[in-house]
């Protein structure tokens, strides 16, 4: 075999990248390396990490119980007590420690955001895989269903679900998830169809792999990139939507639940006198959504095969 000849003796010089005895760099590891160097990703990751930390450590950070008005709080129709040593951000319109409300609001947003996005992702992926793996009439049928879902405005859907199930966290999650299903389904299907036409899928079938194996171990994993990115982006949107639904009075019915959107609603009447009541929860929503969006965008770039070298 003449194949790869060892370099002639004289040129014992270091050889360019070739297979030497060290672990290879997989696609995921390569993406991770690029992410660590991307300032956008770092900012996004820091914001998201801070949000997660706050949400998880809420009881430690808050100091008070959410949704419970403090006795003798001094809230008047024209003003709320400002910052004090006991209440760093003061009290909100209903006489609860604002910091506590914001911190527990993060927790609420996280729970609803993650659960609803997971639901949407699961259902959307199931439909997408169905359409993408089988094609033909299955594809047509699934995609028509998805089109119908897409044609209903998400708020209308939310109103109907809330009307059907009553105001509860569950209906909020379902409403948000329902709006996400078509996004994920279409994305995954399109991505899978694109992958199905690629050479390595043809190569896999030519090797005699079962159709199921080809789909599950080649087509699907290679199609997931855009879906993961989208999930990150959608998580940011979901947090905004939770707030929007609360704002419209379609949120969680329990008045004791700390929720950023609801804080906004209550702050509305005091916009002139105490704008910080609206600004702070608004900023929380915006910053969290921004964090997820930045992270999603840089993930998209890191996973792009064209960026790999």
């Amino acid at each position: 075999m003449t194949a790869v000849l060892p370099p002639p003796a004289a040129a014992g010089a270091p050889s360019a990248p070739g297979p030497v005895d060290e672990p290879g760099v997989s696609l995921v590891r390569g993406a991770w390396r690029r992410l660590r160097r991307d300032p956008t990703a770092i900012v996004g990751a820091v914001l998201v990490a801070a949000f997660l930390l706050v949400a998880l450590a809420a009881p430690l950070l808050a100091g008070y119980e959410p949704g419970r008005a403090l006795p003798g709080n001094g809230v008047t129709p024209s003003s709320v007590p400002g910052p004090s040593p006991e209440h760093p951000l003061g009290l909100d319109a209903s006489g609860v420690d604002l910091l506590t409300q914001l911190v527990y609001g993060a927790r609420q947003s996280l729970v609803i955001g993650v659960v609803s996005t997971s639901l949407g992702l699961a259902a959307g992926m199931a439909l997408g895989v169905l359409a993408g793996a089988f094609g033909g009439w299955v594809d047509v049928a699934v995609m028509r269903v998805v089109d119908i879902m897409l044609s209903i405005p998400s708020l209308l859907l939310a109103v109907s679900i809330a009307a059907l199930l009553g105001q509860s966290p569950i209906s909020v999650m379902l409403a948000i998830a329902a709006a996400q299903v078509p996004i994920f389904a279409r994305l995954l299907r399109g991505s899978m169809l694109a992958q199905r036409g690629s050479d390595y899928v043809l190569a896999a079938s030519s090797l005699g792999l079962r159709h199921r194996t080809v789909v599950m171990s080649h087509v699907l994993p290679n199609s997931l990139g855009p879906v993961i990115v989208q999930a990150t982006l959608v998580l940011g949107t979901a947090i905004i939507e939770v707030a929007a639904l609360s704002y419209l009075g379609l949120g969680d019915g329990n008045p004791a639940t700390a929720e950023w959107g609801r804080l906004l609603v209550r702050a509305q009447a005091r916009l002139q006198s105490d704008p910080h009541l609206a600004l702070l929860p608004g900023a929380c929503i915006a910053v969290t959504a921004l964090g997820f969006t930045l992270l999603g965008e840089s993930l998209r770039e890191a996973l792009d095969p064209k960026g790999r070298r």
Binding site: S26, L27, V28, S198, D199, Y200, L202, A204, N222, R308
Partner: peptide, 8 residues
């Protein structure tokens, strides 16, 4: 193109 980039 014919080798799945994800696999070792």
């Amino acid at each position: 193109a014919s080798l799945d980039p994800r696999q070792s």
